[in-house]
Structure formats: structure tokens, C-alpha cells
């Protein structure tokens, strides 16, 4: 695993205890905690790519992290082109890989 979320218990910033939630990503459950963005849940679970580019079929995930690059687009509950780095995850969200952006 590469990217990870700092465990609340060992985090010097002392975040409140986790309030677990689960999102479903391409059919697989991925665990996170309330308040995380969808990108945060995915990266926190060690996943770094979740989109395939239109032209080259290449994998992408987060690049800018603040909503300006549009690399992190996912389909959320049937709605395409949602920036995963901005959207807060809700328990039960169904996240689907997008092939391209058009």
C-alpha cells in the first residue's frame, strides 16, 4: 500500500474518533470515515487511480487535490464528472470508474 490515512490514534493532530462509512467503488466496498472526500477515502485505502483517460486509456487519480485539474473525475450515484477531491463521501455512495471525460 502506498498512500494511507494517518490512524486517528497515532495522529498528533488528534482528530475525532472515526465514524466509519463505506462507499462502493466499481462493485467493491471501500472503508473511510465521515468527512473525507471520495478521493480521501480512496487514497486513504491505498488506491491511487480510478479513472481511465479518453484518448490514451491511461490511469489517473488525484493530481492537484483542490478542484482545478479535473483528473480525479468519477461517476457518483449515476452522475458523471464529479471531482472526487471536492465531493464529501456519503455512506453507501456508489462510485464508478469513468472512461474519459466526454
Amino acid at each position: 500500500m502506498t498512500s494511507y490515512r494517518v490512524p486517528a490514534a497515532s495522529d498528533p493532530a488528534r482528530p475525532a474518533a472515526d465514524r466509519p462509512l463505506t462507499i462502493v467503488v466499481d462493485g467493491e466496498p471501500v472503508a473511510g470515515t465521515a468527512g473525507q472526500t471520495i478521493a480521501g477515502v480512496l487514497l486513504g485505502a491505498g488506491r491511487r487511480e480510478w479513472r481511465t483517460t479518453a484518448a490514451g486509456g491511461a490511469p489517473r487519480g488525484v493530481f492537484c487535490g483542490i478542484g482545478v485539474c479535473f483528473d480525479c473525475l468519477v461517476e457518483v450515484n449515476g452522475l458523471r464528472d464529479v471531482r472526487a477531491c471536492l465531493r464529501r463521501a456519503q455512506d453507501g455512495d456508489v462510485v464508478t470508474r469513468q472512461g474519459g471525460t466526454r
Binding site: 502506498t2 498512500s3 494511507y4 490515512r5 494517518v6 495522529d11 493532530a13 482528530p15 473525507q36 472526500t37 478521493a39 480521501g40 487514497l43 486513504g44 488525484v62 493530481f63 492537484c64 487535490g65 483542490i66 477531491c85
Partner: peptide
């Protein structure tokens, strides 16, 4: 992005 994820999510890239 690394900064935003560390501060806003406590996620290490």
C-alpha cells in the same frame, strides 16, 4: 495536493 490532503484529510500521498 500533498499539502491539501495532509491538512484536510490527514492522508499521506
Amino acid at each position: 495536493a500533498a499539502q491539501a490532503l495532509a491538512k484536510g484529510e490527514r492522508v499521506a500521498v
